[in-house]
Computed example of a mutant assay.
Amino acid sequence: MRLVSFVQVLLLLALAAYLLLVALENPQVVRLPLPFGRGELSLPVGGAVALFLVTGAVYAALLFVPPLWNVRAKRRRDVRERSALENRLAATLQARLGAMTPAHPSADAEQPQTGTQLPATQTSGNQP
């Protein structure tokens, strides 16, 4: 789809260049009617071509505005959703950590043991 748009732009630029060449070859005056019947605007052909090219460029630029707004809105929505998710996860983690009972060592475990324990070893039958 991008290739088609690229070819269209190239064709429009070629057409604009041809019209500009014609305007330079034939310096005539063109009368353009103004809206609502308020007279007319007299321009040379080159000026009229330039005016129409600028109008077309502004129109083409305005065609790109809604997709850019959609991308910006999607990015803001993603950031907001990610922030809300991180807040929910943090709240869940704090709730779970708060629900856990702290592991306090008992009083018996703090006193040193008086007897020593030998590690359990396997003995074979012929050891002295």
Score class of each variant (00 low, 15 high):
Glu25Ile: 14
Val58Ala: 06
Ser124Pro: 06
Pro66Leu: 06
Ala103Gln: 11
Arg2Leu: 15
Gln122Tyr: 13
Ala91Ile: 07
Gly47Trp: 00
Val58Asp: 04
Thr121Gly: 03
Ser42Tyr: 00
Leu43Phe: 02
Leu51Arg: 01
Pro66Val: 04
Gln127Val: 11
Leu41His: 05
Pro128Leu: 15
Pro35Gln: 03
Leu15Trp: 12
Pro35Val: 01
Leu118His: 01
Ala90Tyr: 08
Val22Pro: 04
Val54Cys: 00
Gly98Met: 09
Leu11Arg: 06
Ser83Val: 12
Leu41Pro: 00
Tyr18Phe: 11
Phe64Trp: 14
Ser83Phe: 11
Leu34Cys: 04
Glu110His: 01
Thr101Ser: 13
Ser5Pro: 01
Ser106Gly: 15
Leu68His: 05
Val22Lys: 10
Arg2Glu: 15
Leu68Gly: 06
Arg31Met: 01
Ser5Val: 06
Arg96Gly: 07
Leu97Gln: 13
Glu110Met: 12
Asn126Val: 11
Arg88His: 04
Val79Gln: 13
Gln113Trp: 05
Lys74Ser: 15
Val54Phe: 02
Gly125Tyr: 06
Arg88Glu: 09
Arg80Ala: 10
Glu110Leu: 14
Asn87Gln: 15
Glu81His: 11
Val45Leu: 12
Pro27Ile: 01
Leu10Cys: 13
Arg72Pro: 00
Ala109Arg: 09
Val49Thr: 03
Met100Phe: 11
Arg76Tyr: 12
Glu110Val: 12
Pro112Arg: 10
Arg80Tyr: 05
Leu20Val: 05
Gly98Phe: 07
Pro66Asp: 01
Val54Pro: 00
Ala91Tyr: 08
